[in-house]
Structures are given as C-alpha cells and as structure tokens.
Amino acid sequence: MKTIAVDIADLKVSSDPDSALVTYALGSCIGVMLYEPNLRIGGLIHYMLPLSSLNAEKARDKPAMFADSGVPLLFESMYRLGCKKENLVVTVAGGGQLQDKDGVFNIGKRNYTILRKLFWKNGVMVTAEDVGGDVSRTVWLYIATGRVVIRSQGKEVDLCSPLRPS
C-alpha cells in the first residue's frame, strides 16, 4: 500500500487502487474527501483558511490554501478524470477549535461555515463528517474502497466505507 501525503494548503487525487491519500494534523484546517465508487478515484484537499480574498497572490500560487478557491478545484480535478458529481461520496473532517471564549480564534468555524455555504449553493450532499471540538485529526482515504479513517487522540474510527474490499 502506497500512502500519498497531502500537505497543508494542497490537494491530490489518485486512481491507484493500491494507494491511500493521507493528511496529517488537521486542526482548524479542514479536509474534504471525494470518492467516485464506480471509477475508484479519490481526491483530498487540506485547506487552511476560508476566503481567497485574504491574499490574492497566495490564492494564485496555492489555491488549495483557501476553501473558496481550493474546494472547486478539487471537484474539477475529479471531473477531469471522468467522475460524475452525482456519484461522488463526500466526507469532511477537521475544523477544530482552540478553547477561546471570545471566538477570536474561530478559524475552524469560519472554515466550516464557508464550506457549508459552497456545498449548499452547488447542491453537494455530505455523506459523513467529523468536525469541530478541540481535537486534531489525521485522515486516510483508501482508493480501492473509498474507506475514510480518522485518527484522533490515539483512536481510529471509520467515517465512511462505500465499497466492500474486493
């Protein structure tokens, strides 16, 4: 099994059934996982901030840094490989929060809010999600089965497993 690491502010797609996309230490950042069960293609983005209007230059260099520039790019990358929107299994993880009663540090929540808006506007349904809380998460997306595993605080949990291992 090959693991393909997706860095912060980056996105990757894979059609290699012997691979898994993995992204480490999602804190307030959010990971969006897309999977096409018919074609067995998966994609993962690890975005850091909600809006690309924050810094136009960064948005150009690293569109995957922001939700509003990165998430559409992830969908397009999947479409380019022949995936159909209606077949995509969508899962979401991350968006954690530090303990901050004034909410100055609400990047995680802002990251999540903008994603929900994007999905709502484009009619995207989320199959499963694990978001919020004061925890850090690591996520695996197995290309052969679309299984999504989340490790947080020493525990591993299956978020979603669309296909049985063949």
Partner: peptide, 11 residues
C-alpha cells in the same frame, strides 16, 4: 490550530 505541533494535547 494550523497543525504545526500536534502533540498529545491536541487543540
């Protein structure tokens, strides 16, 4: 918050 320094304390 950005994931640079995830120790056992998490967030």
């Amino acid at each position: 918050a950005l994931g640079f320094g995830a120790d056992r304390g998490g967030l």
